[in-house]
Design a protein around this nucleic acid. Structure first.
Lengths: 135, 135
DNA sequence: CTAACTGTATTATATGAGTAATACAGTTTA
DNA sequence: TAAACTGTATTACTCATATAATACAGTTAG
């Protein structure tokens, strides 16, 4: 059963997209694997304190992307080829890295400063990383 | 007069926040300075193809933060202390760097891989950076 | 078998973002 | 001075997000 213990609201983006991203990241990180069962819509919505429809929206998108399988009455579970996993990995890395580089270049810092910033925040304790959400 | 020639829709976040961010980045990058005049609400909304109210919302926030000054009838202009500029610089760098580091760590890549990604996208042509927007 | 769970679907409501159309008062400028 | 711009404010509308309350059919487990 996939755990949502580490799920936290990252920003003000739609919740169903944050759930989607949480699962995609788990897949890429290897903490979510082929065959893993997902919490039911009702259980996860209660756990996250959101509406079941919001969870359903996320699960529906995951199914449309072919990452999970659902059949009426039974729990949904992860169905995932190695190729699909690599695709998601590339997608997530591109989004994150491109976005950060674009932002930092717009601010006008140098590549060396960017590397220094990366190191600075990489070693930082998770508690210190909590704040500084996007606006 | 502040130029919005380089303004592009970065993501699906609210337009008024993107305008806010564009100006903050310009201030930090040094392309927007004390005393610079802003395009009027009507002119900028026509230029960006959005509603005047959307621009007004961004300008209102900038005024609330003490970054611009408006008076009825006249153009708005940038009022900015060196200290304020440094505050914004820190704020923007923290947001971008923390956000990127948090995401990359969740995906499970190493610090070395992160540095390699940074270099890879840093040298990339701006055209190639266009896509890969956040979801 | 049946009770308690699943997924799925529907309808209604609330809120925030963005648009649209105005209106009015203050300023610049020709 | 008067026209053409400014900022500011209001009301109404659409759309996406999220919630709420159900309903129904399929699966699973006691």
């Amino acid at each position: 059963m996939i755990s949502f213990d580490n799920f936290i609201m990252m920003d003000t983006s739609p919740i169903y997209l944050q759930i989607l991203l949480y699962i995609k990241r788990g897949i890429v990180a290897g903490t979510i694997c082929y065959g893993d069962e997902l919490p039911s819509r009702r259980v996860l919505s209660a756990l996250l304190g959101v509406n079941p429809n919001t969870v359903q929206k996320a699960y529906k998108l995951l199914e449309d992307e072919g990452l999970i399988q659902s059949r009426a009455g039974a729990k949904s579970c992860v169905v995932l080829t190695e190729q699909k996993m690599q695709e998601i990995r590339t997608e997530l890395l591109e989004d994150d890295a491109k976005g950060a580089v674009r932002s930092l270049k717009l601010i006008g810092i140098t590549r060396e400063e960017a590397h220094a910033l990366l190191d600075k925040y990489w070693e930082m304790e998770p508690e210190m990383m909590q704040e500084g959400l996007e606006e």
